[in-house]
């Protein structure tokens, strides 16, 4: 089945790219691999007929957020090569072990839960979900929708204020 081949291809690439985000020593490469991961995930969303989320994922995440990341990386001119924490050389095994514990225990619950659900088939979504999404967003989820705007306003104000260059005028106005 070509769909499942495509799915597994995306699966493997996403996983590999995610690993490379952590393993690559150059921050720019990390960012590029992060974009790749996001694109793969968008592909997986598409396979689940979540076209809208896929589009948002590509446009907002890969398109906007990651550009911001790259921009800051360039701005700060981070030439120094990323090395792993020196202190963690010896502790790395423990970190991996802890993460494995997390992965295994949560993953095991997924296996156990889903084994009981073998017979459940995903119901069909209406073919054209985007109007429904829009309607739901502005009715049922009106409050979170508004809150998101507040959140973004805060982020903008805060980012602008914190990252702002200190002008000489500022000292005079607060004294």
């Amino acid at each position: 089945m070509p769909v499942s081949i495509l799915y597994y291809a995306l699966f493997v690439i996403a996983l590999g790219a995610a690993l490379m985000v952590v393993l690559s020593r150059n921050t720019v490469y990390s960012a590029a691999f992060l974009i790749l991961t996001m694109l793969c995930l968008a592909g997986i969303f598409l396979l689940m007929h979540q076209e809208f989320v896929a589009a948002i994922q590509v446009i907002v995440y890969a398109g906007a957020i990651m550009v911001l990341f790259l921009f800051v990386i360039m701005l700060l001119n981070l030439r120094e090569r990323e090395i792993l924490l020196p202190d963690f050389r010896s502790l790395r095994i423990w970190v991996v072990l802890l993460v494995l514990v997390f992965f295994v225990q949560v993953g095991a619950t997924c296996f156990i839960v889903l084994r009981q659900m073998r017979d459940v088939y995903p119901p069909e979504l209406p073919p054209d979900t985007i109007p429904l999404i829009a309607k739901t967003l502005l009715t049922k989820y009106l409050l979170p929708f508004e809150l998101v705007s507040v959140l973004l306003v805060i982020a903008i104000i805060g980012a602008a204020m914190i990252a702002r260059h200190d002008e000489p005028a500022e000292h005079s106005d607060s004294s």
Partner: peptide
């Protein structure tokens, strides 16, 4: 979700306020 967004509104404001002493 409202809870998450409220928590984020709160947290983001506090992150910024924590770093507001820019000097």
């Amino acid at each position: 979700i409202t809870l998450l967004l409220s928590l984020e509104i709160l947290s983001l404001s506090l992150y910024i306020l924590t770093g507001i002493e820019r000097h």
